Amino acid sequence: MRILGIETSCDETGVAIYDEEKGLLSHQLYSQVKLHADYGGVVPELASRDHVKKTIPLVKEALKEANLTSADIDGIAYTAGPGLVGALLVGATIGRSIAYAWDVPAVPVHHMEGHLLAPMLEDNPPPFPFIALLVSGGHTMIVEVKAIGEYQILGESIDDAAGEAFDKTAKLMGLDYPGGPLLSRLAEKGTPGRFKFPRPMTDRPGLDMSFSGLKTFAANTISGNDNDEQTRADIAYAFQEAVCATLAIKCKRALQQTGMKRIVIAGGVSANKQLRLELEALAKKVGGEVYYPRTEFCTDNGAMIAYAGMQRLKNGETSGLGVKAQPRWPIDQLEPIA
């Protein structure tokens, strides 16, 4: 089975082809970072229009890269949510239309399930069950994963997600958009211990998280200190350390609560080096393992959608002739794979 996956949930247009036996055959990605940089964040209408321009050319490039034609494709998978509704509708309508034209089934895919399954694209995929830390854009959650589709949310952010906190704090520091990766690079020059940020909601039971307070703490720290390069780096270090330590503490609790030993981290923030070090240290301490996708599959991409869609199509799921776009879609509402 060969599946063409289309990802258009936010500001990246991703198209990929996944073969059940051979693995990933092609992977095309276009980022809209330059388009939105002048606005300091994603402009939904501009994102939707750019997806309209880029999706079909990327489909053609994916087929060319894989040395395939439309006759070689057995199904279309498209991101149906969560995400920006206009952007989702672009990918959903294009995906459903291509499927109709090529006479193959189409299946809507949950964006966060795509991220959760992204490590399955690697040579050493995690076996089930495991704990998944999903840190992507406006989402931060810890999920107990027993099998594909068998998800229980153990904890999630009650306000700003980790990625949002990174981007907003970077903006406070005067860094360009998208600020999260730039803040992490600045933190590499920071001095450990000069500033100490709180670890929010770690002094109370439970696995829910909050990062808006860290952003406020960062704002007060920035305004109360000199704006020289080293001070900014030291603040970035302390902020990143606090976020990663908080996530590690919550993951440790999740492992203790479930008795599991395996952790999967996925989503854009999973590319953060400090977070990976924290969770690798945690896994080593408990005698477990940590898994994550390669860096290019941490951010939004078509490969994860193609893989997740293949699993859903094999399970007999399709969208029929309908088009699904669901900007709010809890991951624990998905059906388990039979």
Rank of each mutant, 00 (worst) to 15 (best):
150 E>L: 06
174 G>M: 09
174 G>C: 04
66 A>W: 05
280 E>H: 10
85 V>R: 01
107 V>Y: 05
169 T>V: 12
241 E>L: 02
282 L>F: 08
287 G>N: 08
123 D>N: 14
22 K>A: 15
172 L>G: 04
31 S>L: 11
247 L>F: 12
303 A>F: 00
70 S>P: 01
196 K>D: 09
314 K>L: 14
104 V>M: 01
81 G>R: 11
198 P>F: 01
247 L>Q: 09
271 A>Q: 04
137 G>V: 02
127 P>K: 14
242 A>Y: 04
106 A>Y: 01
327 P>N: 05
136 S>Y: 04
275 L>A: 11
89 L>S: 03
270 S>R: 08
216 T>A: 03
30 Y>G: 09
323 V>L: 00
77 A>K: 12
42 V>H: 09
228 D>H: 12
304 M>Y: 03
177 Y>L: 10
14 G>K: 05
185 R>A: 11
184 S>N: 06
42 V>I: 15
223 S>W: 00
151 Y>L: 08
137 G>E: 06
257 Q>E: 15
77 A>P: 14
110 H>M: 02
59 V>L: 03
107 V>W: 06
252 K>Q: 15
134 L>H: 10
182 L>K: 15
283 A>Y: 04
295 T>G: 00
15 V>Q: 05
72 D>F: 00
130 F>N: 05
324 K>I: 15
173 M>V: 10
93 T>Y: 00
80 A>K: 12
218 A>T: 06
312 R>F: 06
28 Q>Y: 02
89 L>Y: 12
287 G>A: 11
174 G>P: 11
289 E>G: 03
291 Y>G: 10
307 Y>Q: 07
259 G>T: 11
